[in-house]
Each structure stands twice: as C-alpha cells, then as structure tokens.
Simulated scan of single mutants.
Amino acid sequence: MKPITIAICDENSRDAGVLEEYVRKLLPDAEITKLTKSHQLLNRMTENPNQFQLIFMEIEFEEENGIWVAQEIRKVNKKVGIIFMTKSEKYYRQAFDVFALQYLLKPLTYEKIEKIFYFLDSNVQRYNDRSMEERSVCFRYRSRFYTIRHSEIQYISSSLHTVNFHMEDGGIIHCRGKLCDFEDQLKGSSFLRCHQSFFVNMNKTMGMKADGFIMRDIVVPVSRTYMKEAQKQYRNYLNEKELFTK
C-alpha cells in the first residue's frame, strides 16, 4: 500500500509542527506536506485534485476563510477527508456543510489525533474509494461534538425534544432537538422521513409493510401523512438498487 498523503495547512508554524509530530508517531510512513497559506493548498488541489487523501486545515486565516477554501476544494475533489482545527466553535455548523470529517478545537493533543485515526481505522486510503454517500450526521450535545456516519444508523426517532439515533450496533445516541434540525444533513441521502417522529435509513430496511418499515428488531411506523411519498421514494430506492446490482 502506498503511504498516506496528508496536508497540514496552518499559519501557526508551532501548531503545524506539533500536529506533524503527532501524526508521524501514529503513521510513520505518511507523506506530510506543510503549508502556511490557504491559497497554497487551494492552488495545489486545483492543479492536482487527488494529491492528498487527508487535509488538516485551520479555519481562521488572514486571507481566505477556511470554510470557503473547503468549498472550493469540494468542486475538484468530493472525497478527500477534511479535518478542521481552530480555537473557535462558531464555524462548527458550516464545517459539516462541506462534509468535514471532524472539527477539532485547539490546542490539539496527541489523544485527539489518535482518536481521529482510530475513527479512520488507521487507513485513510479507503477514503479515496468512498463516494460522498458515506456522509455523516454532526451535532453538539453537552459540550461534546458528535460525528456519526449514516451507515452506522438504522433509524432516527424523536420524543419530547430529544432526538434518538438508533445505531447498527444496537446502541442509542441522544441529543436535544427536533428531527427538523437534521433535515439538511439528511437531504439527498438514504434516509426517508416516514413519520412526524421518524426517519428511516432505507439501506437498513428488510422490507415494507402496510404500516411501516421492517427493520432488524422493530417496525418503524409510517404515518398517513407520509405514506404516499414514503412508498414512492422506497419504490425508487428499490428500483435503483436493482439496477445497480445487475
């Protein structure tokens, strides 16, 4: 396997040096390129969109905003993993509009970076083979940031201003809010709104009954309001799946 190619883009040379040290401890063979200006990174990605598999990038540059730079990068490469690092929490929502893998608050620690590569299974190479359908739901709850891949979720429910993510492994992750808070993050994905209180991941369904979707351990209800549209979207999903597997 070829060495992982990583870009570190940060005007703060000390922060960049510390991050490089942490990454090299975890991935000694990684090819690391350090850049101090956001336009340097953007120019490199424009000239060769596939040269990096993972990008660590500060958001608050003196010139272009890091969110804008990521938007431009997504125009030429939709798969490269982008990890933001900054001292401010104010760009958190915007970061995941460009499908960031993670949002790290400075100061960085070895433990934070270790968790990142644990999440990536210490194999960033596979991100080159992923489509953008491997998306994530991101939110903050009780001072903690969560990034949950769509493929890990069976369905999502809500009750009493609490949203519940029912996971593939049987666990449940909670946060305060409403289902409508996550509609933008689920738009265009395999998730289908089938009830005022439920989203179902069609990739995890075993079939559809008259009153709901058959999951591994439960039937997720479909309400009258959503029935016609749910049936239509599910038929389209099955047709596309059949074409894809032929």
Rank of each mutant, 00 (worst) to 15 (best):
R216H: 12
G207N: 05
Y234D: 00
K112R: 07
Y103P: 06
S38Q: 01
H150I: 13
T245M: 15
S197L: 04
C9F: 02
H161Y: 07
K78H: 05
T162D: 07
L19W: 00
R24W: 08
N164A: 12
L41K: 00
K79F: 06
E72K: 09
N203P: 00
G66D: 12
S136D: 11
T109V: 02
E152H: 14
L243M: 15
I83F: 01
S136T: 15
E240V: 11
Q71I: 00
G170I: 10
R149Q: 15
Y92D: 02
P221E: 05
T109S: 02
I214C: 06
P221Y: 01
D169P: 01
R142Q: 14
H161W: 02
Y146F: 15
P221K: 04
V80I: 06
Y127L: 15
L105K: 10
Y127Q: 13
Y127H: 14
V163S: 06
C175N: 06
E152I: 10
F99G: 05
A16E: 01
R24H: 10
R24I: 11
A95Y: 05
S159N: 13
D169K: 06
Q71K: 11
A7S: 14
M202F: 00
M132D: 15
K112N: 09
D121W: 04
L54Y: 07
E114C: 04
S190V: 08
M1Q: 11
Y234V: 01
N50Q: 10
L120Y: 02
Y155F: 12
T162V: 09
T162G: 06
L26P: 09
I173M: 12
C194I: 00
L54W: 07
I82E: 05
S131R: 02
S159R: 15
I82P: 05
I4H: 14
S143V: 10
E134H: 13
V69H: 05
K187Q: 15
T225L: 08
V76G: 01
I6G: 11
V80C: 03
C194R: 01
P49Q: 09
H150P: 08
F145H: 13
V98W: 04
I116T: 04
F96T: 01
E89N: 08
F61S: 07
S151W: 03
M45V: 04
D169Q: 07
N201S: 06
S197D: 13
G81I: 10
L179H: 04
Q102N: 13
I32K: 08
L243I: 13
F96D: 03
V98K: 03
Q53G: 15
D121S: 08
H174V: 12
D211M: 07
I218F: 11
I55K: 06
H195I: 00
F145A: 12
G17S: 02
G207M: 08
R44L: 11
R224I: 05
I156Q: 02
F165Q: 06
S189C: 03
S223Q: 05
P221V: 02
D29C: 08
S223A: 03
H195V: 02
K241T: 09
E47T: 11
I116M: 06
R126V: 12
K187H: 09
K241E: 13
E60M: 09
N239I: 15
Y103R: 04
T245A: 14
L179G: 05
L108R: 00
N48Q: 11
Y22V: 03
E111M: 07
F61P: 09
L54S: 01
Y110P: 01
D181E: 04
Y146R: 03
C175F: 03
